[in-house]
Design a protein around this nucleic acid. Structure first.
Length: 775
DNA sequence: CAGTGAGCGAGCTTCCGCTTGACTT
């Protein structure tokens, strides 16, 4: 029997470490935290030093019981959780929950999973750092108090089931405020002038584009300049050559991996994490939730060998990266391939592409700089003071660029840097083939993508590698934010050209403002945010987290008691909650659209119990007000009176089919046709106000066909029971309940008796474990 | 999920961070 029990956080890590430690050690995992505050109530005693009441969540009971059993048998228990605030707390909770005595417990840490690092850790055990544990308790309790006191304020003042928290509310704020900036943005235009010069080389001529140093504010100025150019001579005034270099980006952290996978592969943040998890579990990459850019010496050595072997010694440059972010806790290595000599792996295409990205980034980070030569040619105009500038860039030595180049978020960088420029001399006269002025517009700041939001949150020190993806899904699930594409609009611009001594003025058209998979605030998101910013500015402050992190550090250093820190925060915060509940009004975001021409009653747009609605009349009128849900894509902000009045034309009976009425309306899940007691969703392009009976019949028939294809088997004896084909394969449906079919049965061959037997044996739904489902 | 919305009132919702399966329709 093993004398030593080692406990780590992740099972994949446990497997690897067990190999290094030999047969005297058994290595198990805690699967993260094993105790937490109850999800049902506050579980913090605000009247008695904020004492937390911890419990073992139901899905962790089995793990804890097993660890307890093994711990009892072991002589020594090694707590090897991560060396950060959360990891230290996990060790402490383990010690408490498993009832470990100080004598038989040793705390060890390592930052990389290599044999030497682990053996070294075993040689240098310590005790649990209670100051660090306290810093975690402060973090946990603060988040609970903020979340569980702010959310109920929203239930009362805005809408039930909403949520607020230290991280998610700031994420929503960023998106709402960016939208505001975009709305208030007034584009300004200027005229950019470009000349195409002919340069004579031995034998032929080549064209070089040069841009005028300054832009013109008005069309008039631009035209005036071009007029001066008609009779101008162009002379090269200077040629400047400068060496430059580019350095590779550091290895991936969770946040930079999410950004690059989004830019280069088009992955959503959650997709990146799912794929990375698969690569980690199959041993292909190191841990994927990390804020460290550090590589182990082992990895650096491997990289050096691979680079020298593949590209040559000249391409090797060993680099140690330091994390810039202050909030980083660096419990792990950077994300890198486990074996750098594997440039590719087996797996599905997403896995291969993500792996390749990680491989390239890691290898490039250990390669030499790229050496460039930048050339700037200045060209004078005899009839004007302005100068044209031509820029060129040549790569003298490619270095890391051979493998990898980081992408940027800039959508259209108007840098007009060309490759190699032809050799020219100062004093040389040039011929201008064409000169044109083009009207350019300033751009509003871009809307956030999932990945650029993660980047921003990381910069603000808000959230952790393990929470970036869940936070983004939370704010979408709550309906604060939507991921959507935005259609571009057509814009006219001036184009004035000079060639053959003639000036031509044109107005051209371009598409602008097209955006893909960007984050837009919803009406609810905007209303909730404005409310929170107004009444809870302290918690919503972009620097709130940075401030409390500083205090957590003081607690970790033993300079401050954790419940003192919480007390100082809680008193004013709680008073503010009480005062807001008392004084603030219900936030409905109500906007008066106008009057109904038929009745003269007011028409409003506002937030209803289930989302944005339009309303005719007021609740103190004699007649009840009427309501209608807003169409998808429309908001309180931009819905018009005409649109609102249209919606009251619903429900609309549009005709008969098979002797039954077809009624069109908008419901909870969008526009639909109701026919013979059944609902059929309208298509994306169908408008419920104008949809024809012919189209409605088409929709009904299409749905019937789809349902038929979904049905694998029906039974005449019992029409309530059906075997259907769903997202997860075949299943049995009866009385609106679904049952899984045992794997060894062929769904097509099942008899009614067998089906009823499966239903009989199906485990009764219990609501005790884990999350409860809404009714 | 099921096609509402006022008002009445009971009973519900909610946080962040650490980690994977168990389970779904």
């Amino acid at each position: 029997m093993a004398e030593n029990l080692v406990i780590v956080e992740s099972p994949a890590k446990a497997k690897t470490i067990e190999k290094f430690l030999g047969k005297d050690f058994i290595v198990k995992s805690s699967f993260g935290h094993i105790r937490d505050l109850s999800p049902k109530d506050l579980s913090v005693d605000v009247d008695h030093d904020f004492k937390p009441q911890y419990e073992i969540p139901s899905d962790k009971k089995k793990t804890v019981a097993e660890l307890k059993k093994l711990a009892k048998k072991a002589k020594t228990v090694w707590l090897a959780t991560d060396e950060d605030r959360e990891g230290e707390a996990i060790s402490w909770h383990l010690a408490e929950a498993l009832g470990l005595s100080d004598e038989k417990t040793k705390r060890i840490v390592f930052h990389e999973i290599t044999k030497s690092a682990i053996l070294d850790a075993v040689e240098n055990p310590r005790g649990i750092d209670y100051h660090l544990v306290d810093a975690q308790q402060a973090r946990r309790v603060l988040d609970r108090l903020v979340g569980f006191e702010l959310s109920p304020v929203l239930w009362k003042k805005v809408k039930p089931a909403l949520s607020a928290g230290r991280v998610q509310s700031v994420a929503v704020r960023l998106i709402v405020e960016r939208e505001e900036e975009i709305k208030n943005f007034k584009p300004e235009s200027s005229y950019k002038v470009t000349a195409v010069f002919e340069i004579k080389k031995d034998g032929g001529t080549s064209n070089v584009e040069a841009e005028l140093q300054n832009r013109f504010k008005t069309k008039k100025e631009a035209v005036a300049f071009l007029q001066k150019c008609i009779s101008a001579q162009y002379t090269i005034e200077s040629v400047e050559k400068k060496p430059a270099k580019k350095s590779p980006a550091p290895p991936f952290t969770t946040s930079t991996l999410q950004q690059e996978a989004s830019r280069k592969l088009g992955f959503s943040v959650s997709k990146t994490m799912v794929i990375a998890q698969q690569l980690y579990e199959s041993g292909k990459i190191t841990y994927m939730r990390t804020d460290s850019v550090n590589l182990s010496n082992l990895a650096i050595g491997m990289a050096k060998k691979v680079i020298a072997g593949t590209y040559g010694e000249d391409y090797v440059k060993t680099r140690k990266y330091k994390t810039k972010s202050k909030s980083a806790q660096e419990a792990h290595e950077a994300i890198r391939p486990t074996y750098l000599d594997n440039q590719t792996i087996s797996g599905d295409s997403s896995q291969q592409r993500l792996y390749e990205l990680i491989w390239k980034r890691t290898i490039a980070s250990q390669m030499s700089d790229a050496q460039l030569e930048k050339t700037t040619i200045k060209i004078g105009v005899s009839t004007a003071g302005e100068k044209f500038i031509a820029r060129g860039e040549v790569i003298k030595f490619d270095g890391f660029l051979k493998v990898y180049m980081e992408s940027t978020d800039d959508e259209d960088s108007s840098e007009s840097t060309k490759g190699l420029l032809p050799p020219v001399k100062v004093g040389e006269k040039l011929n201008a083939k064409e000169i044109y002025a083009i009207q350019r517009f300033t751009q509003s700041p871009p809307r956030y993508t999932e990945a650029s939001l993660v980047k921003k949150l990381e910069e603000l020190g808000i959230g952790r590698p393990s929470t970036y993806a869940p936070t983004i899904s939370t704010i979408q699930k709550r309906g604060y934010v939507e991921k959507a594409d935005k259609k571009g609009t057509e814009r006219k611009y001036d184009f004035i050209s000079l060639s053959d001594g003639k000036i031509k003025e044109e107005v051209k058209k371009e598409k602008t403002g097209y955006e893909k998979a960007k984050l837009f605030p919803t009406d609810i998101g905007t209303i909730v945010n404005n409310f929170l910013v107004q009444y809870f500015d302290k918690v919503l402050d972009y620097n709130f987290t940075a401030g409390v992190e500083k205090e957590f550090d003081e607690i970790a250093e033993g300079k401050k008691a954790w419940n003192e820190m919480i007390k100082e925060f809680y008193k004013p915060f709680h008073d503010n909650v009480e005062e807001t509940l008392e004084k603030s009004k219900k936030q409905s975001g109500e906007r008066l659209l106008g009057q109904d021409p038929e009745t003269g009653k007011n028409v409003f747009a506002k937030i209803g119990r289930y989302g944005p609605i339009v309303q005719i009349g007021e609740s103190n009128d004699e007649e009840k007000p009427k309501f209608a849900g807003l169409k998808k894509g429309r908001s309180i902000e931009d819905v018009t009176l005409e649109e609102a009045l249209d919606m009251f034309k619903l429900p609309r009976t549009i005709g008969k089919y098979e002797d039954e009425d077809m009624v069109v309306a908008i419901g909870r899940f969008g526009p639909y046709v109701r026919h013979a007691g059944k609902f059929y969703a309208l298509g994306k392009t169908d408008d419920p106000i104008t949809v024809t009976p012919e189209r409605a019949i088409e929709i009904i028939e299409a749905k019937r066909k789809a349902d038929k294809e979904k049905t694998i088997k029906e039974f005449k004896e019992d029409p309530s029971l059906k075997i259907l084909n769903g997202r997860y394969g075949a299943y049995i449906s009866k009385d609106k309940k679904n049952y899984r079919i045992p794997k060894n049965k062929d769904p097509k061959e099942l008899t009614l008796e067998e089906c009823l037997e499966i239903i009989e044996k199906a485990p009764k739904k219990t609501n005790t474990g884990g999350k409860r489902r809404k009714k």
